[in-house]
Design a protein around this nucleic acid. Structure first.
Lengths: 121, 121
DNA sequence: GGGAATGTCAACCAATTGGTTGAATGACTG
DNA sequence: CAGTCATTCAACCAATTGGTTGACATTCCC
């Protein structure tokens, strides 16, 4: 699917690792916003907010359309899906583990558990 | 479900925003590892790797069992699932949008769209 | 007990981050 | 054209990050 290389994943997760930027994404999920509108909920300078927007854009999480003097931002699908998929690997890891555990409990509940061995290397 | 508050999400995504730590998680997905084993693939001091491990632990992404002098690390399920769910919100955003777009294309394909403005630069 | 193995801690350092301010750029408006 | 609006840029600053090294603590082993 949409594959991200390591540096891109770095940028995506780094961008997500800040409440300000996550809030901006949440606002963008409602509808498109200008940089000024994105900045408005925060008690920080426009320049600071602009840097956050740039971080999001840099990570590919949003794209920007410059229309006149306003910069209109929208969510971009790719990287979020990628991060989602990346995490999905670990989600799968856990569902596998839990399934295996459940299986073990079902098949082993009458036997002694001395046959427990490593399942992978 | 497993809900993370903002500071915890900060820690989780911050932890994921580093290739070293993601590699450690990948190794831990194979099997449990000691701190030394986690550090081994990297050209950095053990102390540095230990800090990365602590960041992962701090984010709740792994848990550690101190057995004798060895610290054995394992993946922890909760926060990864939470981050996954968080991202799922945006995945849903996009599937919704794409579905809506598909719907639009189906219903609008016979009508003229005179709202064509010069928007691309 | 002595020594190697496994990790952490503390101090330190360079680079990055997140914020500020003030000036500059570009685009609308009167 | 002058002024304001939307935004970025550059310089700067404090705090954090990611790395180093050397000095601990514990634990295992002979």
């Amino acid at each position: 699917m949409i594959e991200l290389e390591a540096p891109q994943l770095d940028a995506v997760f780094h961008a997500l690792g800040d409440a300000t930027r996550r809030r901006m994404l949440r606002d963008l999920a409602k509808s498109e916003r200008t940089v000024g509108q994105l900045a408005e909920p925060f008690a920080m300078s426009l320049a600071a907010a602009s840097k956050h927007v740039k971080a999001l854009e840099n990570a590919g999480l949003i794209r920007r359309e410059v229309r006149g003097r306003a910069h209109i931002c929208r969510l971009a699908p790719g990287p979020l899906a990628s991060a989602h998929e990346w995490l999905n690997f670990y989600a799968r890891f856990w569902t596998d583990r839990l399934d295996a555990l459940e299986g073990l409990l079902l098949t082993e509940d009458t036997r002694r558990s001395d046959a427990c061995k490593g399942d992978d290397s």
